[in-house]
Amino acid sequence: MAVINAVSLSKRFGRKQALDNVSLDVNGGDLFGLFGPNGAGKTTLLRIMTGQLEQDSGQAVILGIDAKKDPMEVKRRVGIVPEVESPPTYLTSYEYLYFVAKVRKIPDVEGSIERWFDFFDLRDARDTICRDLSKGMRQKLMLASAFIHEPKLLFMDEPFINLDPIFQRKLREYLLGYVKNGGTVFMCSHILEIAERLCTRAAIISDGRIIKSGQMSDLLKNGARLEEVFMGLVGKGE
């Protein structure tokens, strides 16, 4: 059953057509990867589907909710990891997770915070304000804040960026377990090696249009690597 249903989404910023009639479905249990060059429309699509931005036309239905009509309900039910790690400047790591847990009305606030502090090894940064965290620590905090309410659907924009190899691996394994237990992931990434190993379905977007989509196994026919497929489709002779 489709948990993400995007139909003919278009969005224009001034003279730039960021999305042009984009349609896609993502089913429950998918680990869906969206790939494309810089400025192709990945982040715009993710922001529209998570109710952060309104499309000019088309419809995005997320977990049965129209993202344009009820963006708050979409945000309540999904977890979002943004492209740029931007937690609040003046809250400590603990306070940020506490704030998110309270806003999301999680019953066991302390237990949830402790769980993700342990998972991402954030204990030493507990009393450090986000301004003073390294980029990697901020990224871990953003991931923890997206996971803390245990949503059924995760939207992640470059989730592996700034993470060291140990945590890249840990996150990969967590996501595999997450989809195995019925969760769904929609992910944008430039790290094609990880995406190739992780994603079950994928789409490639260029100039605001989906130019290829399907099962990962179909995209990687005849032993092709995702990077080769990607370069063949959008490399423009590179």
């Binding site: 998570t50 952060q52 708050m72 309900e73 945000k75 309540r76 979002i80 943004p82 740029v84 931007s86 937690p87 609040p88 400047t89 998110v100 806003v103 999301r104 804040s145 997206a146």
Partner: peptide, 9 residues
């Protein structure tokens, strides 16, 4: 900045 609010309800 208020950007992170957009990730929350």
């Amino acid at each position: 900045s208020t950007d992170y609010y957009s990730l929350l309800p």
